[in-house]
C-alpha cells in the first residue's frame, strides 16, 4: 500500500519535472511561430567573462527610454517597454510603463538603473548559445562587428504578449553560423 502511494507520488513528481521544461519549449515555440519579428541592434560587451565559452554575450544598443513623468521606478522593478521601429528597420524603446500597454508592441523588462532622466533596461536578451567549438570564433567575429565604427551586428527577436525569444544573430547581414569556418 505504502509503496503504491510512493510510486503514485513519484509519477506526479515526474509529470511536474517533465511539464517544467516542456512548458519552456511550448511557450518559446509559440512565440517563434506567432510572434512579431523585430531587429535589435547590438553593441560590444566586455570580453572578460570567466563563464563564457558556449555562447556569444550580447548587449542591446538601444536599452534605454526616458523616465516617465511622475513615476518612481526602482532598480529591479518589472516594467513594460514600448517598441517602435526606426527608418532603418531596427527596434527602439520609446517609453516605459508600469501598466500593460493596450495595442502597441512591447517587451517585458527589468529596470537596471536610472541614469540622468533615462531608465536603463535589462531586456533579457543577453546571450546567443552556440556549439562549444564555434562559440569562441563567433564571439570574435561578433566583437569586431559590434565595435563603435562598424556596428552592423543585430539579433532578430520574436515577441508575443511582451515575451521575447531570440531567433538569430546576424553579423554584416548574414547569420553568424554562416560566417564561422567549418572545421
Amino acid at each position: 500500500m505504502k509503496s503504491k502511494l510512493i510510486i503514485g507520488l513519484f509519477c506526479c513528481l515526474s509529470v511536474a519535472q517533465i511539464a517544467t521544461p516542456l512548458s519552456m519549449i511550448t511557450r518559446r515555440e509559440s512565440v517563434l511561430k506567432n510572434g512579431v519579428l523585430f531587429k535589435f541592434k547590438t553593441a560590444a560587451v566586455d570580453p572578460y567573462d570567466a563563464f563564457r565559452g558556449r555562447y556569444v554575450a550580447l548587449r542591446i544598443q538601444e536599452d534605454k527610454a526616458p523616465l516617465p513623468h511622475g513615476r518612481r521606478l526602482s532598480n529591479g522593478q518589472n516594467v513594460y517597454a514600448l517598441i517602435s521601429v526606426d527608418d532603418l528597420g531596427f527596434a527602439r524603446i520609446v517609453a516605459v510603463t508600469t501598466r500593460r500597454p493596450g495595442g502597441a508592441p512591447y517587451i517585458l523588462a527589468l529596470v537596471r538603473y536610472i541614469d540622468k532622466g533615462n531608465v536603463r533596461l535589462d531586456l533579457s536578451l543577453d546571450r546567443y548559445y552556440m556549439d562549444e567549438a564555434a562559440a569562441p570564433a563567433a564571439e570574435k567575429i561578433y566583437r569586431e562587428h559590434a565595435r563603435r565604427d562598424k556596428q552592423d551586428a543585430y539579433i532578430t527577436v520574436r515577441i508575443k504578449d511582451g515575451f521575447a525569444v531570440i531567433e538569430e544573430l546576424f553579423v554584416g547581414g548574414k547569420p553568424i553560423k554562416e560566417l564561422i569556418p567549418s572545421s
Binding site: 513528481l13 511536474a16 521544461p21 519552456m24 519549449i25 533579457s124 548559445y129 525569444v165 531570440i166
Partner: peptide, 24 residues
Amino acid sequence: IALISQTYHIPGDAGTFILTWMAL
C-alpha cells in the same frame, strides 16, 4: 533545463534556474 535554455537562448538568470531545479 540547461539544454533547453541553450536551444532557445534563454538569458542567464541563475537564481530562477537554481530555484526551479531545487523545487523539482
